[in-house]
Each structure stands twice: as C-alpha cells, then as structure tokens.
Amino acid sequence: MPTTFFGWVGYLLDQYGSLFLRGTGTTLLIAIVGTILGFLLGLLVAIVRSIELDPRASGFKRALLKVAQAILGVYIEVFRGTPMIVQATVIFYGAQQVFNIRMPQMFAAIFVISINTGAYMAEIIRGGIISIDKGQTEAAHSIGLTHWQTMVSVVLPQAIRNIMPSIGNEFVINIKDSSVLNVISVTELFFQGKSAAGTYYRYFEAYFIVAVIYLCLTFTVTRILRFIERKMDGPDSYTVLGSTNDSHANFTVRKEG
C-alpha cells in the first residue's frame, strides 16, 4: 500500500483510472447536452415572452398569449428559485412514487439539467434581446420583415453574440453543478470519485483527483468558448473592391483597436 499523498493519488488513478474517465465522460455529456437543450428551451421561452402582439390581433389570441406568458413566468420563478439538488430529487423520486415511472438515471439527469438551465437561459436571452437597439427592429419592420423574420435574421444573431459570455458561464456551471446529480445515483464524476474514495477510505486523494479533473474541464471549455466568440465576430478586416483610378485594385482595411 502507498504511504504518501501522491503515492495514493497514483494508486487510485491506476486502480480506478477508467472509473474516473467514465465519470468525466458522463459529466461532460450531461453538461453539453443539458446546456444545448437548456439553451433551445430558453430561446423558445424568451421569444414567446418577448412577443408584442399586433394591435389588430383578436381578443382570443391576446388571452392565449397572456396565459402562455404567465405559465412561462411561473416556470422561470420555480426553477430559478429552488436548488437543482432539490429539483432532481423531487422529479426523480416524485415520478417514481406518484406516477410509478422509473426514469433511467441518464435521462433524469439531462432532463433536470435542461429545464434548470432553460429557466436561467430564458432570462439571459431575454436580456440579450432587450439589449439590441430598437432601431434594428424598426429598420427590419420598415422593409417588411415579420416579427419572426426579424428575430431570426437580425435580433437573435446579435443578441446571442452579446450573451455568449453568459452562455459560457452556464456551461461551466453545468459542468460543476451536475455533481449534485449524484443524489439520484447518476454515475457522473463526483459519484465515481465517491466510489473510488470509499474502497480504501482515501477521501482526500480521491476528491483531489476529482477537483483537478473538474478544473481541467472548465479551463479548457472556457478557452474553447473564447475561441468561438472570436469566430462569431468575423474577420477584423474587409476588402475594398477597386479604387477610383483602378477598378481592379483591392485593398484591405483593418478594424481599429
């Protein structure tokens, strides 16, 4: 048996390397799928919550929209106002006891993370939509684009670019907070660390490994997101085609700063 701290770290890695690796994979999978689904859910919620009806719309349409918006408001309040660990247990065990449905752990994990993320994303995206200058929408309407076309072609591309840092935040939070899903026995990284720790009672070493893996994940993901942001900004330069003297001359102008 090893006698030093790093001896034990090495020993646990050797014994449970594949366990940690599988846990890491599960954590990443839950975080990625949960963030993407949560984003799409949030997008839908934010769009519905930002609809302004044509004043000619009928009373029925108006009432329907009001009801839908109220329900979405409640959804956001409930899922932002309760801890995810509680949501996970209520949904997982609730489904089992009340409806007699036994959800597969993975399904439950992604379900919980998605609707939890969706509630936060809805508010982030709504903020992004509001932050876009009203003139953009007015210009789109003035050439005849509908609300939906304006959203898809003009407002959302700018809004999503602006909220990329917040979306990245949510992703990083999901990598870390998916650890609470160990309460419903999802075999993510923290759960696997717990298993590895229990065998030899080496809690410090096992959780140290877990901590380092989490840090590596979040560090890498943050860098990747920065890269994506820069890609979204497009090239800093553009080419001016032709000049007043020579129509074949091209030159490139670089953005200042």
């Binding site: 200058d133 003139g135 953009q136 007015e138 210009a139 789109a140 003035s142 003009v154 591309p157 700018q158």
Partner: peptide, 12 residues
Amino acid sequence: GMVFQQFNLFNN
C-alpha cells in the same frame, strides 16, 4: 421604405 436618422443598418 424608410431611412432613419440613426441609419439602423443591421449590425450583424
């Protein structure tokens, strides 16, 4: 059509 004081070109 309409031309605005603040141009309102689509920034994206």
